[in-house]
Structures are given as C-alpha cells and as structure tokens.
Amino acid sequence: MLNVDRLPRSIRLSLGIFAVLLLLLAYLSFGAIQLPVAEILQVLKLTLSGSFEQAQQAYPKTAAILVHIRLPRAIAAMLTGAALALAGACMQGLFRNPLASPDILGVSAGSSLGAVIAITTGMSLIHPLMIPLFSITGALLTAGLVYLIALRTASQRQLLFLILTGLALSSLLNGAVSATLLMARQYEISQFIFWTMGGLEGRLWPHVLWPAPFLLVIGLISLRQSTALNLITLGEENAHGMGLNVKQHRQKTLLLSASLTALAISIGGPIGFIGLMVPHLVRLIIGPDHRKLLPIAAITGSCFVLLADLLGRCLLAPHEIKVGIITSVIGGSYFIYLIARIQKQGATL
C-alpha cells in the first residue's frame, strides 16, 4: 500500500490541495441540476477576470446557478466545517480531553434560544439575516454568562466548573426554548425544528459574506494557540512552569472557540458532531501536535461538510437531506466504530 507518510512534504501538500479542489468541483457540478465541469471552469474564469456578464450571456443557466446558489453555499459549507472543527480541536486541547466538543459553554442552547425568539417574534420574516443575528447574540451571551459564573472559582478548578455551569445553563435555556415553542404557531415550530437540524439550503452571499471576515480573523488567531495548547497537554501546572500564562490562554481559547462555534451556527444552524469527530479523527491519523492538528482539522472539517452536503443534495435529488442529518448519521457510525475498535484492540480514545 502507498504510505503517504513517506512522500515528501511538498507532494503531500499538492495532493491535499488537489483533492480539496476536486471535491469543490464535484460539489459545484452535482446536484438537482447537473452543471458540466467545463462550463463551470469557463464561468469561474470569466467571473474572476471581472466579466460576469459575458459568462451570463455564454452560459446563462450555469452562470446563474453557480454564482448565485452553489458557490455561496459551498463557501458556507467550508466556513462552518472549518470553524466547528477548529473550535473542537482547541476545546479538546484546552480540556485535555479527546472527546470535548466546542459546545461546552452552552453555545448551542444559547443560539437555539436566539433563533426561537427570532422566529416566534416574527423578526425572521423581516429579514433573512435575523435568525443568524439572534442566534449569534444568544450564543455569545450564553458563553459569556457561563464564563462569568465559572470565573468565580479558583483557577485550578475552573475547567470543571465551566462544564458544570455550561450544562446547567444549557438545561435552563432549553427549558426556555420549549416553553416558547409551546406558545408558538405550528409553522413557527416547524421552522425552528428545521433550523435545529442544521442545514445549508438557501444560503446566499449575504449569509456568508458578513461572518466570513470574522471567521477568517478569529480562525487565524486560533491557529496561533497551537504551541500553548501543546504545553497545556502536560497539565496546567507543568504548562505554567514552562512559562505559559495558563489563565490568559484559557480565556483566549474559550473566547475564540465560542466565537467560532457561534459564527458557524449562525451560518448553518447547529450542525452536529463535526467539532467533536473531525479533530478526533485527524488526531488519530496525524498525531496530537496542535501545530499540525489545528490547520489540518480545519481543512478536513471544511471538506467533510462539503462532502456531507454534496451527499445530502444528491442522494435523493431533487429532494434534499439536511446536512445536519448526514453528519449525525456519519458521526454516530464513527463512534460505534470507535467503540468496536477499542473493545477489539484495546486502543485508546
């Protein structure tokens, strides 16, 4: 078998980029309406050189579907995947637990409450960006509140209290969500339930353009936490002894991960399992060094959501399966595989 590890770095990198581009091209081409690859490349070439109108005249159907529908959706998929996987990798490192999820600070519950408020107050009808706006506000407020409560404990036990407070607050907020839904109209309930499944249908340029710069900046700052995360794996005391400002690093990582998760949820809803599964899988393959783990998890996460959404669009075309459903099925299967593997070979998580 071909051993990828033996190949030179530059070849591995080129192979990786090639695979990502291939997947992206497949995503843009397949779907309810299939777009020929040659036309896609032509339209992209013309659009990138600034003559979209020319592309529209030459290939009206391809240009319209590609530029207005599939391209923003592809970017939405890649951004959410990368953000969730990166946040998950950071949280697993910070909590020194390979099964931590980026959801620890109650971000999902907070965003759910935000979304349900946007839906039941009718705000979501005013503007399509209201659900994202409300969900991100709910998520960040919740994360902030969880952190403020946990902050009152001594530094050494803060991680434990973060988990406890996150659980407590999530439970409270989920209660509030249910209570709100009791009083909601039938179509509002359906709209909310569809939102909680996590999906990328109907994501247009406005959905991705406003969070994109935030995601890029926060993502790049998160990548710079890699060395500190490596130190923290040896325990907070040892990391402190090696010159790390443990408290500051913890605050920074929590803030970055919560923001990444909140932004991702605001684009695609709560797409499950990516933040937990992707970094875990990548760590099994390339090892725990965060300097490699963080960027590769981000890339893998974006490819994973791209692939899951491609499957969702193609499996029952012209009907769509929401991407959250696909990732949940894959995620659940992955964990059953993990359990079987550990039972059989005694491998560690």
């Binding site: 490192g93 020194r96 794996t233 040896l234 002894g241 090696m242 010159g243 725990p288």
Partner: peptide
Amino acid sequence: VAYMAQHPEASFPFSAAEVIALGAEN
C-alpha cells in the same frame, strides 16, 4: 526556574521526544 508537577500527566499520545522538546519551547 523550571518546575515538574507531582503527577506526570499525559492526555494526548505525544512521543516522549515531543514532550521533552516542549521543555525548550520557552
């Protein structure tokens, strides 16, 4: 000053060489 904690914690499968290298990070 360098410090070694009482419990040699190991949460992720770093190689021993990688752990030793972390000592030089600062």
